[in-house]
Design a protein around this nucleic acid. Structure first.
Lengths: 112, 112
DNA sequence: TCCTATCCATAGGCTATCTATAGATAGGAG
DNA sequence: CTCCTATCTATAGATAGCCTATGGATAGGA
């Protein structure tokens, strides 16, 4: 029947960028972070995550470098760039505007 | 660069169903209503609207009949069904849950 | 030694949206 | 009377983005 999506389409890039504002992280960690901070409501599948990171790299919104994790594992760390931070602000404001607009439609307020 | 979408992907069906809770409407009117109630933030293109209405018909969430408008024009009026109303409730609750979850990620709350 | 968790990445499919197009008619402007 | 705009429906094609399914590699614990 109606299968619930793992996340709201169109919001993944924003969520990733936001997650990277705190500190550089590797892909796996980004997914874990989003899942945890959303109380397991949002799940980022690997098949969504890595293509998204490629997009962000291509746009220049993040940069990447190979490093070792604390547990001595090879991992690719992503860092938010200046333009990435700007983009995040843009996406957040557009998102909030949309949410408000949807809220107006969903509310039962009568119109003229 | 970054082109803003007309609406949040995945929310169109919900918006249409909600619009039909008031009264049966034809497609063109639904689009106008969503645009107006959202203060022109949300725009429903015809190429998105009519396929969406076909989906809703197939699912049995709306039914349709040809009628004449007040201005003596031929138009197809869509009516929300009982299952459609149930579906709307489901989609709204899932949507709100997602919005809250995204809000938690976007907030700057520190974690463990 | 085996298993699980960690970590990366891609291919293929599917769904939904956007662009573009097409056609028909009512009513007002000129 | 004719043209133009708004109203109204509908589909085809392109594109984007997410999901499923894989594949591979390694660290560390059982």
């Amino acid at each position: 029947m109606g299968k619930k999506p793992d996340l709201l389409p169109g919001t993944l890039d924003m969520l990733i960028l936001k997650t990277l504002t705190r500190t550089p992280m590797h892909g796996y960690g980004i997914a874990q972070s989003i899942k945890r901070q959303s109380d397991d409501v949002l799940t980022v599948e690997e098949g969504s995550l890595y293509p998204a990171l490629q997009r962000l790299l291509l746009q220049g919104w993040v940069k990447a470098e190979w490093r070792m994790t604390e547990t001595n594992r090879r991992a690719r760390y992503y860092t938010l760039t200046a333009t990435g931070r700007k983009q995040l602000g843009l996406e957040v404001s557009q998102f909030e505007q949309m949410i408000e607009a949807i809220g107006r439609v969903l509310s039962d307020a009568k119109e003229a």
